[in-house]
Design a protein around this nucleic acid. Sequence first.
DNA 1: CGCGTTTGACCAGCGC
DNA 2: GCGCTGGTCAAACGCG
Length: 259
Amino acid sequence: MAMAGDWPFSANEAYADSSAIFAELDWANGLAVGELLPPLDPPESETPAGSAASSCSTDDADGGGKPAAASTEAASKPAPEKKGGKKRRVRQPRFAFMTKSEIDHLEDGYRWRKYGQKAVKNSPFPRSYYRCTNSKCTVKKRVERSSDDPSVVITTYEGQHCHHTVTFPRAASHIHTMAAALQMPPFVSAHHQLYSNLPPASLPSLLQPLHCNQELQAVASSGYHKPSVTAASSSSPARSVPVDEGLLGDMVPRAMRHG
DNA sequence: CGCGTTTGACCAGCGC
DNA sequence: GCGCTGGTCAAACGCG
């Protein structure tokens, strides 16, 4: 696989091909992607929205229905304890985006290990499942191609990284740090146009620092300067983005924000 | 040898 | 209750 040691922007042609990010809904919940999902199971989950979204917590709470074997216990398959009360699958906050790319697995600065692939219904293309290789990080992502447009890759992130990217870019650090602050892959913030029907207020919640991410926030806030590569927002190329809507302004065209 | 991928099996949730 | 589907596990395998 492509080693994440190489900063994708230098070699990964997919980025050049990538043309846009479209708004995407969380199909399962009917929410705009990027918005933190409401707790599906408030009593048991530690409030996925906001702080508890930490993927650092050992409680993956999810594990696809299986006992949370995330990262550590995976080896010994514990006897599947009978769940007295139906424990609903608790999802981490997710966001997804569509990318026009010829390759499925876009480099985003993190290292991922593929742990599964499934054929999905209503799609001729299989869905791949990836997990962050950081043992303390339980972030997962799914990658699949759109059945409507095979050139479009749909990537869904679940959870938030509690660590820096594996590689820190040389030149594009501003992009990367910004993306880190967003818990997004860098190409999201830098190379794509993100259309979203998120209410403006929801994005800041997405940016909410996690206890284990505060360093990222710090880095981002100190190192960030407005990237010049966000010209994808062709709607208003020369506008100056107010501080309070900076990232949002970069990614969400104004026209899309008053939906 | 370590790390990542492949792939079939297994399990849980959900709809009928 | 049953079948379908999505999600995950884990052994086998490949590669550097």
